[in-house]
């Protein structure tokens, strides 16, 4: 267990004019940790995720990341080229809407292979071989390797997104409501897959979800957000079983018990 965090966030704040996107968020994330950000829509959890993934720039605050060489770097001071390189090698981003996370006109194999080609792999056979392995790992029939995701179901598209992101062995993966909009059984299968991959690969994950069941199943820690602020944070089972704040108690009590 490394004692330096992988990601260190301090005082992260984003204003949209007079409106607060998120305010004064600080936390550390360590390798292998899964952090769930929960809250209702409009609570600022997606804003926070976009700030962390450097897709938005903050009004205030800092984000530091431990690079593969061990150096802690200030993400906001990095050049765009470096950040983008990080995004397509050491990071992943699984999006709620697969059509934003995949190239819908490119075959499944090409979708998985893109990151490999982006980091300079130039051997077709090996790229295809790796894509093949990853399709297998995310339980997509390998004879679909040349089909485009247009022909895939919602669950398959999400699994393909995961393969596409994990192929470069990232250390940090952002997930934005990866299971919403899927049927319950499809959702269960996807959660199971994500859980296994996360523990197998020792990934650090920041997952945004409004679904407390998803947070409970996948995450070690949870941050509860309301009106752009983190109002409660802690071990996932602690926050969900012993919620302190009124809002968290409300969230927990409005979950159907199954």
């Amino acid at each position: 267990m490394s004692d330096t965090p992988l990601l260190s966030v301090s005082g992260l704040t984003k204003h949209f004019g007079h409106r607060i996107g998120c305010a004064d968020v600080s936390f550390d994330l360590y390798e292998g940790e899964v952090l769930a950000i929960v809250g209702e829509s409009g609570s600022g959890k997606s804003t926070l995720l976009n700030l962390l993934a450097t897709e938005l720039s903050p009004t205030r605050g800092g984000i530091r990341y431990r690079m593969r060489d061990g150096a802690m770097r200030d993400l906001l001071a990095m050049s765009e080229a470096e950040r983008r390189f990080l995004l397509r090698t050491d990071w992943g981003f699984v999006r709620q809407d697969a059509t934003h996370g995949l190239r819908m006109n490119v075959s499944a194999g090409g979708n998985v292979g893109e990151r490999l080609m982006a980091v300079g792999q130039r051997h077709y056979g090996r790229i295809r071989g790796t894509a093949f392995d990853w399709l297998e790992r995310v339980e997509i029939e390998t004879d679909r390797i040349d089909d485009t995701p247009k022909a895939f179901s919602g669950g398959m598209r999400q699994r393909l997104q995961i393969a596409r992101n994990l192929v470069t062995h990232p250390r940090l993966v952002f997930m934005d409501e990866p299971t919403s909009g899927l049927d319950a059984s499809v959702q269960a299968r996807l959660l199971d897959l994500i859980r296994n991959l996360v523990s197998e690969l020792g990934l650090a994950v920041i997952i945004v979800t409004h679904d407390l069941a998803v947070a409970r199943l996948l995450s070690h820690r949870v941050m509860v957000m309301k009106s752009g602020r983190v109002i409660e944070t802690g071990l996932t089972d602690q926050v969900l079983d012993d919620p302190r704040e009124l809002y968290t108690q409300l969230l927990v009590s409005s979950v159907l018990v199954v």
């Binding site: 802690g234 602690q238 079983d241 302190r244």
Partner: peptide, 9 residues
């Protein structure tokens, strides 16, 4: 027991 396990604060 839950307090010991860290499940309850």
């Amino acid at each position: 027991l839950k307090i010991i396990y860290g499940n309850y604060r």
